[in-house]
Design a protein around this nucleic acid. Structure first.
Length: 918
RNA sequence: GCCGAAGUGGCGGAACUGGUAGACGCGCUGGAUUCAAAAUCCAGUAAUGGCAACAUUGUGUGGGUUCGAGUCCCACCUUCGGUACCA
């Protein structure tokens, strides 16, 4: 009987489902293990072989954990709200729900075919009202809570109201609070809520009549159509993630995440310690606040720079400078953020005409506007210290502004301008003679004493915009009464999306939902919010729902949450480092503060899987002809490289007939061959339809089977690393499975159709046990450290050895079957049943490791003398325990071997002499 | 700029705390089997020299530590990923 994967795989997949093998039940007697994949957005394109990489890894890990007696949760679901479905709806009029459902069906079928151990019963779909009911509910919690700095945690907004009524705040008394109208009170509270309304700029495209995402804007023009895009202020929802900046930053240290990822989050949070300081204008009419991390260089400030968008710009511009400033503004307005970042080296700016007084020296400093100061960071204004800041220096030189050196670096000639470690203050009044850390402290003390500045911690992190003017997202559970937002009651959730006639934007900046008037007008004087939540809303808590997906009383029950507690292993792409992973942590922290989850951090260990790149095939066309020259000869001609579909190329050889049929234009193509074949060139690049290099997992399953696909994806290289998909290599994985199969069903010349496995009940020999136990040790250690590539190699080695030993014993093959099961579950299941088992191999317990078989043999090994290998193969010199302890005996043993020469030093590793020094 | 990761055969990659570099797989070469092919099996495969045993050189470059370095330290080069003109 041959290995017939196309028969085996559907058979066991159906059986697993029938038997409910992967149904997860909380079992408090076992240790739990929660293994999570980033759930996919069900795009219309389906899966390519890159997508399942991480899923296969978690599948192996979770199956291994089941074998080793853990209660495992390994779920899958769909991040189903998103732009592509909406885009498609706009073009075709098809409801995004339909498109999404169809895509989910395709994805599910593709995933099932690979044989994952998901409990599909626990699948969550973010666009399902039964799910987004709880997304809305969590939004309500965010609205109803604020961040209390005293306890560094979220507290009910009702507590804050009570406090205002009793003792007021720093801005108003209790009586003043009570005198406020409802609107006024709500406005005050809005400044505290974790979900709040505020005005902010959006990318507005007049021609398309819609708001665009940053990705949809290129160089100030819309990506589609190329229409101009301007900033427009709109009232929108925000989440106050900045309140959690410090917690999100510090908790990072406790997470087992890739360093690069943590670093990205740190940079994104962007904490910097410094001081704020107020500069008064020359006429004393205006105060300009700046933020600096270098208060020590205060005396080196020779001018001040404000962002062109600074709120005091008009007030500070003098009559004589007005024209130049307006001209500069026009220039800046025409530049996108991307432009501004692209040529950071160009120095531009304009003088305002006004001056500020230096708060310590009293000198007059000119105020400039320049685009290198960003309105959105700090206060949008800086004191420019050309002596100690590269950008300020370039600016001063360009506009011939004075430069005062304030740090004496003569003792450290190699130190740079922005060096904060070395040097002594000079030209700086009371700071003279101090080193930089001392001066920073002294300057801050002085600013605070004078009441013109204070210590301040600045974050780069911004509150998260939470409104989208789109249809296909979660509706906000919010009603407006006279412009004041009110939440729906819990009983009114979920608030479902209305049906609309058109998915096109309304043209006035509202989402398509605004056209559903019956829905919007919820009652007299009551209007619903017409924006929807952004794509990341549903993915900010989904891992919690998997714990208890059918609960209609809570987003997760306390009991289930305590059982699963935290994701033990989270695998996904690094592209979500500062988006999803940041928001997910933030939501989890808030839920933790509310006592709804038991851990502040959702994902204990995180691994980023590397991208699987495509391997494109290239043909070389002679310029101006329809003749193609083989790769090896192309340098002799002048050619253009063109991509060809990898399906008509096998082992880099082009199928000439298929090529001629591929495109009409190549019907009469001519070829210059080498060795009688056309060899294609290749290039490793992103898998994309454009390069004709996309490999579909369905095709691989068709041709080689899911088990081969799984094995090969793991064998390709380390999980975290980017690696190219090379179809040529897949035969090796397939061959391995065939070899494995043949251990059970050896094909003898006499009996071609032996249908029963040829298994003996004999006892295993020590040699066989050695191979087996080495493999158990290696494979389990490798799975634990997620080194699936080397685990597969170890299995291959074992099979080769058993093959050459002619092993047919149950005592060996049964455990081997379990070892293989996480990697190639279908074949393992088939063989497991062929050996007479009735229950699934998934539930079998992992073979027990017997360390006695791991001990090294005491046979020949090499010994070096003076670091140089003396005898490659030598009789054993392994020492007895006593000899290792007793220097004398050791010398004796070695001396004997060295023909009586006494060694000076003997290097022993694991009880064996490795090197002898004479 | 800055931050992070990585440079090993023709290719993907092994080598866990410093201990025989190149496991495993692909590809290639030769052989067996076959009418032939596919499939399968066996042998070889870092480079140079040698019939061979073997010798020498070899993990991006240059130094260093060590009996011993792909692995540790210093300097540099290259590639990839991230990013913020962040005061």
């Amino acid at each position: 009987m041959d290995y017939n994967f196309s028969e085996i795989e559907p058979k066991w997949q159906a059986w697993w489902e029938e038997q409910g093998v992967y149904r997860v039940l909380e079992d408090p007697t076992k240790p739990k293990c929660y293994v999570l994949d980033m759930f996919p957005y069900p795009s219309g394109a389906g899966l390519h072989v890159g997508h399942p990489l991480g899923y296969i890894a978690t599948d192996i890990y979770s199956r291994y954990k089941r074998h080793t007696g853990h209660c495992v949760l390994h779920p899958m679901g769909f991040d189903a709200f998103g732009l592509p479905a909406e885009q498609y709806a706009i073009e075709t009029g098809q409801h995004p729900r339909l498109t999404t459902e169809q895509n989910i069906t395709t994805f599910t079928a593709q995933l099932r075919r690979i044989g994952f151990d998901y409990d599909w019963d626990r699948a969550v779909i973010t666009a399902d009202p039964a799910y987004y009911r709880w997304t809305q509910w969590i939004f309500c919690q965010l609205f109803e809570h604020y961040f209390e700095p005293e306890v560094q945690a979220a507290r009910p907004i009702a507590d804050l109201e009570k406090r205002f009524a009793q003792q007021g705040s720093s801005d108003f008394s209790a009586d003043q609070w009570k005198a406020m109208s409802r609107q006024e009170q709500q406005q005050v509270l809005m400044a505290y809520r974790l979900a709040y309304l505020d005005y902010a700029d959006v990318n507005w495209c007049e021609a398309l009549g819609t708001v665009l995402a940053n990705d949809e804007v290129k160089d100030g023009l819309s990506e589609r159509g190329g229409h101009p895009v301007v900033k427009r202020r709109m009232r929108q929802w925000f989440l106050r993630i900045t309140a959690y900046a410090d917690r999100l930053l510090h908790q990072l240290d406790l997470l087992d995440w890739p360093l690069a990822l943590k670093e990205m989050q740190r940079n994104w949070i962007g904490r910097s310690e410094g001081a704020s300081c107020v500069f008064s204008t020359q006429d004393g009419l205006h105060q300009i606040e700046i933020f600096t991390t270098r208060p020590d260089t205060l005396f080196g400030a020779t001018f001040m720079v404000l962002a062109p968008e600074h709120h005091l710009r008009a007030a500070l511009t003098t009559e004589t400078q007005k024209d130049s400033v307006d001209e500069y503004l026009a220039y800046v307005a025409g530049r996108s953020e991307r432009d501004r970042m692209a040529d950071a080296k160009t120095v531009t700016g304009v003088f305002s005409g006004s001056y500020v007084k230096h708060p310590l020296s009293g000198e007059l400093l000119p105020i400039w506007f320049a685009e290198y100061v960003l309105a959105g960071y700090g206060t949008g204004a800086i004191m420019a210290v050309p002596s100690d800041d590269n950008r300020d220096h370039a600016f001063a030189q360009h506009f011939s502004l004075p430069i005062i050196e304030v740090i004496d670096r003569s003792a450290h000639p190699q130190s740079s301008r922005e060096d904060r470690e070395t040097g002594v203050l000079m030209n700086s009044g009371f700071l003279n003679g101090m080193n930089i850390p001392q001066a920073i402290k002294a300057a801050m003390d002085e600013l605070e004493r004078l009441g013109i500045g204070q210590r301040k911690i600045q974050y780069r992190l911004r509150d998260a915009g939470f409104s989208r003017q789109r249809y296909w997202g979660e509706p906000f559970p919010v009603l407006y009464r006279e412009g004041v937002p009110e939440l729906l009651s819990e009983a009114e959730l979920p608030l479902q999306l209305p049906e609309v006639e058109s998915y096109r934007p309304t043209g006035d900046g509202h989402s398509p939902i605004a056209s559903a008037r019956d829905w919007v007008e919820a009652g007299p004087g009551l209007e619903r919010e017409t924006d929807t939540m952004p794509g990341y809303a549903g993915s900010s808590w989904y891992w919690l729902r998997y714990m208890d997906p059918h609960n209609s009383n809570a987003f997760v029950s306390g009991e289930r949450e305590q059982f699963w507690s935290q994701v033990d292993l989270y695998v996904g792409g690094a592209e979500h480092a500062v988006g999803h992973l940041m928001y997910a942590r933030f939501w989890n922290h808030v839920l933790f503060d509310l006592g709804l989850v038991s851990q502040p951090e959702p994902f204990r260990k995180m691994v980023n899987q590397g991208m699987i790149q495509g391997r494109s095939s290239l043909v070389y066309r002679l310029e101006g002809s329809n003749t193609f020259v083989s790769h090896g000869l192309k340098d002799q001609y002048s050619t253009t490289a063109l991509h060809v579909d990898i399906s008509i190329v096998h082992n880099d050889r082009l199928d000439l007939d298929a090529f001629k049929q591929w495109r009409e234009e190549y019907k009469n193509a001519e070829f210059i061959l080498e060795d009688g074949v056309y060899r294609c060139g290749s290039e490793v690049e992103k898998m994309s339809k454009r390069w004709y290099n996309v490999v579909n997992p369905d095709d691989v399953c068709e041709r080689y089977g899911a088990d081969t696909l799984r094995l090969y994806e793991m064998f390709l290289g380390p999980l975290e690393q980017a690696k190219p998909w090379d179809t040529r290599g897949i035969d090796g994985s397939h061959r391995f499975l065939k070899k494995f199969w043949k251990l059970f069903f050896p094909r003898d010349a006499k009996d071609e159709n032996n249908a029963i496995p040829n298994i003996s009940e004999e006892e295993a020999t020590p040699q066989e046990l050695k191979v087996l136990h080495k493999t158990i040790a290696k494979v389990s250690a490798d799975i634990e450290r997620l080194a699936f590539n080397t685990a597969v190699s170890a299995l291959m080695v074992a099979v080769n050895e058993f093959q050459s030993l002619g092993t047919r014993k149950r005592a060996i093959l049964e455990p081997m079957c379990i070892l293989l099961a996480p990697f190639a579950p279908h074949i393992a299941e088939e063989l497991w049943h062929a050996m007479g088992h009735k229950s699934p191999v998934v539930l079998a317990s992992y073979p027990k490791l017997d360390p006695q078989w791991l001990e090294e043999d005491q046979f020949e090994y090499p010994v070096s003398v003076n670091g140089k290998l003396r005898d490659k193969v030598l009789l054993s010199l392994a020492l007895e325990e006593s000899e290792i302890r007793e220097e004398v005996l050791r010398r004796d043993a070695v001396q004997k071997w060295m023909d009586g020469k006494a060694p000076r030093k003997v290097i022993v590793v694991k009880g064996k002499i490795v090197n002898v020094v004479v």
